[in-house]
């Protein structure tokens, strides 16, 4: 199931603007890796290269390689659509499909994959909603619109939608930034439990969150606005927070940044 991600010398561009420069890192299977760093340093941009969502933006392009186990995501033979079925994503703002019911939201990915069997779909929806800790709250109103849930519930619905298609890797871009502390804790618990099955990469501005959920932490920074963001260091979370190698990391973590 879960796969290893191996990034080598990655440069990411928006048209002529180089947003991220020269990133190399390895993400172990069945682990949680947190990306931290100041706003605009390219965390989201880099994260979106891991499932080829970056190229959806006009002018978006990438140099370098991203290996998923033995497969180069950016080789000419690889179809971005199949990459996105393997590497799922949860966005910063909950984005359930507004015209679909709760059930259909979770089933959407299955239907895209051509799963027609009602029994399989129903079972997978329930399993995914349970996996996302949402089942008890919505089991009596599966046919109601997904957009009628609270923000935290919507975000867990989006997580359920993403895990329903059984991806190998799950990317999360500040999944808790729009949520209250209780929903945040619910999602953090969820992330820790999902680690058994998936490789998880999470972007967060919340240091405690990174410390609580992640095994490894990567710190990104940029020299100045308009300059590309870079990976400063990546290490075990405990090390990054107690004893980082780079001075910039220590400054950022201790709040002495900028």
């Amino acid at each position: 199931m879960a796969k290893r991600i191996d990034v080598k010398d990655l440069n990411v561009y928006y048209g002529n603007f180089k947003a991220v420069e020269d990133v190399s890192m390895t993400v172990e299977p069945r682990s949680v890796t947190a990306f931290i760093g100041p706003s605009g340093c390219g965390k989201s941009t880099f994260l979106r290269t891991l499932n080829r969502m970056h190229e959806v933006i006009p002018g978006g392009r990438v140099e370098g390689s991203v290996m998923l186990d033995e497969e180069d995501l950016y080789s000419a033979k690889v179809d971005p659509v199949s990459v996105r079925r393997t590497v799922g994503m949860v966005f910063q703002r909950p984005n359930p499909f507004p015209t679909m019911s709760i059930f259909d939201n979770v089933a959407a990915g299955l239907r895209l994959n051509g799963v027609k069997n009602r029994k399989v779909v129903t079972e997978t929806v329930e399993k995914s909603l349970r996996g996302a800790n949402l089942w008890n709250e919505v089991k009596d109103r599966l046919d109601k619109p997904g957009a009628g849930l609270s923000g935290g519930q919507q975000q867990r619905l989006c997580i359920a939608r993403a895990i329903a298609v059984q991806p190998e890797v799950m990317l999360m871009d500040e999944p808790c930034s729009a949520l209250d502390p209780i929903s945040t804790l619910a999602i953090e618990d969820l992330i820790v439990s999902l680690k058994d099955e998936f490789t998880i990469v999470i972007v967060t501005h919340n240091m405690q969150q990174a410390a609580r959920v992640s095994d490894r932490t990567a710190f990104f920074n940029l020299a100045a606005t308009g300059k590309p963001g870079r990976l400063i260091e990546i290490d075990d979370t405990a090390t990054i927070f107690s004893n980082p190698v780079q001075k910039a990391t220590e400054d950022y973590i201790s709040g002495r940044f900028g």
Binding site: S82, R85, F91, N95, F97, N113, R161
Partner: peptide, 8 residues
């Protein structure tokens, strides 16, 4: 993007 990220 939600749809694309699901592999649509």
């Amino acid at each position: 993007e939600g749809a694309l990220a699901l592999g649509a």
